[in-house]
Nucleic acid binder design. Structure first.
Lengths: 244, 244
DNA sequence: CGGAAGTTTGACGTGTGTCAATACGAGTGG
DNA sequence: CCACTCGTATTGACACACGTCAAACTTCCG
């Protein structure tokens, strides 16, 4: 069960990589927040095609955005981690053109759609943050698109592992070179545009090569350098909000 | 040569799908605009990895965002058409993590990065538009990712053709069922994650099936319904800005 | 006319998909 | 504590969509 905390004391804000908000902003955020809900692993947060979604922030757990074709083929667009915004595209457009599903049990902060405009009018710093978060999500999708389109299966999985590790480190959810890994091989396949069987063989090979290791649901990097070389991943400096 | 027009008279604004701006907004936009430049087809608008890019609006012509791996493999992330914003991610992050290249000869409106913050502070409607444009670009990338990851070559090309036609119609750049098509088969291959040879065979096949036709650089839809069925494309209502 | 850029085609190889069987691990109920 | 079950992981045999390579052809343009 979630222990509801005032936004000003939100543990996410303590993390490096989160901007310090002013008192006025925190007041507004708390006024805009209308609830805090739990969603069980595997349940929909926003059904694909839904017309009147809410606006959320992912407080705890993992989720993912996806699209499915009518015959059932599914593409995972990107993974959502604590601190990510959910449902803003649906706010902007008429209906959600993608679905969002909880990957683990998840806690969401619910915000009032009605106050979005007030946010833009009275809190430009927050408006800027919203744009920033939207663009950052886009950058993640871009990177995934390169994997799916131009990397081999081996390279794609290497990229996924190293990229995940980097994101988790940034929010303090990695322990050194290892982290909790709730993704099923089917999720990985759907994220990378691969089949389940081939995903399995590829992960197996990367582990035999000594690049990483899985013990239960915990993934440990064994040779980050080699993974990065394989994935053609040169670390960017972490993304910072430039204004403010 | 471009005939520079005051933003208030910008022909793009006449198109359906563009929001009406207030006089104050138009004043601000004109003050923020610092130039109007031409870029020849094939030249870089923003080099991949550049640190201090400008902020642009695509006024005329086509461009595309892309990423390349160090060994030269290239993935086109999405196509940019008149009215699209260019260089905003680079404004938000430390450096452009992707490149932008002119596909045809292109005209760009150049805007002052220094005034972005003023835009957010004094013109929330415009700030909202910026977020909206960012999210809409994301939606296009999402759709492309589904093609690359989960559609066959035949389906992907069908999707590209029909999606392009839809976007061009929305900005008045299509003539009925046909439009000017500056993409080279190599561009299409790089956008869809295919090889050049296979892209050619696939396009050839779709034409033999009577789904579309190319005469020189002009593409004409011959059976939009069948294309849509192949691509599993159900038309969404056009995206509208909800506020204001 | 010559050359560069783009398109088309064919022969051939392979990375990845498909299908199907088996093994594993964690719950659940007897 | 043992079946049983269900989701997940693993593996092998086989097929095919797509990649690679290479050559010719077509268009355009300086």
């Amino acid at each position: 069960m979630a222990v509801t905390v005032a936004c000003r004391n939100c543990p996410l804000r303590q993390q490096a990589g989160f901007r310090q908000n002013s008192a006025a902003e925190l007041d507004f955020i708390e006024a805009m927040k209308v609830g805090h809900i739990d969603v069980a692993a595997g349940r929909a947060i926003i059904p694909q095609g839904d017309a009147h979604p809410h606006l959320y922030t992912l407080f705890a757990g993992w989720a993912f955005r996806f699209k499915t074709l009518t015959d059932g083929r599914r593409q995972i667009l990107n993974l959502l981690l604590p601190g990510d915004l959910i449902g803003f595209q649906a706010e902007l457009f008429d209906a959600a053109v993608h679905g969002v599903e909880a990957l683990t049990d998840v806690e969401l902060c619910v915000f009032s759609r009605a106050k979005v405009w007030e946010l833009y009018r009275n809190h430009p710093e927050l408006a800027y943050d919203v744009t920033w978060l939207t663009a950052r999500e886009g950058a993640v999708v871009d990177e995934n698109l390169v994997s799916v389109g131009r990397r081999s299966a081996l390279e794609s999985v290497a990229m996924l592992v190293i990229h995940l590790h980097k994101r988790l480190k940034a929010i303090g959810a990695a322990q050194g070179d290892s982290f909790e890994m709730p993704l099923t091989q089917e999720h990985i396949a759907d994220a990378l545009g691969l089949s389940l069987a081939h995903t399995n063989k590829t992960m197996r090979r990367l582990q035999q090569l000594g690049l990483f290791q899985m013990q239960g649901r915990r993934l440990t990097l064994r040779n980050g350098r080699a993974l990065a070389r394989l994935a053609d991943f040169y670390d960017q400096p972490p993304m910072r909000r430039p204004l403010i």
